[in-house]
Amino acid sequence: MKIALFPGSFDPITKAHVDIVKRSVSLFDKVYIGIGVNSTKAGLLSVEKREQMLRAVFETDPRIHIVAYEGLTVNFCKSIGAEYMIRGIRTVSDFEYEKAIAQMNHSLNPEIESIFIVSKPGYSSISSSIVREIMRYNGDVSQFIPKEALAYL
């Protein structure tokens, strides 16, 4: 069974995230969406709210599982039996950043393979941090967020 983890903060989930997950699920038997909990970083949404939001977005696909975790992502991969880690790439700078993380993860656990999925052009400018900034100033984020997630914002 091919199991993959798509880790991130998902604070909030965006249409770009959804696109990466939907394109990933055809490659694997099971995809975990892992909400990384960083105790030094205060999120806009609580971890519980992010879990609820992700479940609402992906509730119809039994191959997708939502789980929060803390600690090293490669250790979490091992705990759920994932041999693949999915990462979305929007820009060249994303690639450089993700490449460095993938190389470090490979040093920590060579059994975990990083899979990069390039964002569709229409989603390359969408990021959770930009969406959070728009939300802070009461802007309309509906074009960037899946409709199932809007109720949680």
Results as ranks from 00 to 15, higher is better:
residue 23 R to I: 10
residue 119 S to I: 01
residue 49 K to P: 02
residue 11 D to E: 10
residue 91 T to F: 13
residue 66 I to Q: 03
residue 135 M to Q: 06
residue 81 G to H: 07
residue 1 M to S: 15
residue 108 L to S: 06
residue 18 V to E: 15
residue 87 R to Q: 12
residue 124 S to T: 12
residue 153 L to K: 00
residue 39 S to D: 13
residue 102 A to Y: 01
residue 77 C to I: 09
residue 22 K to S: 08
residue 62 P to K: 14
residue 82 A to G: 04
residue 117 I to F: 03
residue 84 Y to P: 00
residue 38 N to P: 05
residue 119 S to R: 01
residue 107 S to K: 14
residue 119 S to C: 10
residue 110 P to I: 13
residue 123 Y to H: 08
residue 87 R to E: 11
residue 152 Y to N: 00
residue 41 K to W: 10
residue 117 I to C: 02
residue 99 K to A: 12
residue 25 V to F: 05
residue 43 G to Q: 07
residue 134 I to S: 08
residue 72 L to P: 00
residue 87 R to G: 09
residue 23 R to V: 10
residue 150 L to Y: 00
residue 90 R to Y: 11
residue 3 I to S: 13
residue 53 M to E: 00
residue 121 P to G: 06
residue 96 E to F: 04
residue 17 H to I: 05
residue 136 R to E: 06
residue 21 V to T: 11
residue 30 K to P: 00
residue 10 F to E: 08
residue 143 Q to N: 09
residue 118 V to M: 11
residue 52 Q to P: 01
residue 37 V to N: 11
residue 64 I to S: 03
residue 144 F to E: 01
residue 139 G to C: 10
residue 41 K to T: 12
residue 35 I to H: 05
residue 29 D to L: 13
residue 121 P to A: 11
residue 11 D to G: 06
residue 16 A to G: 15
residue 151 A to M: 07
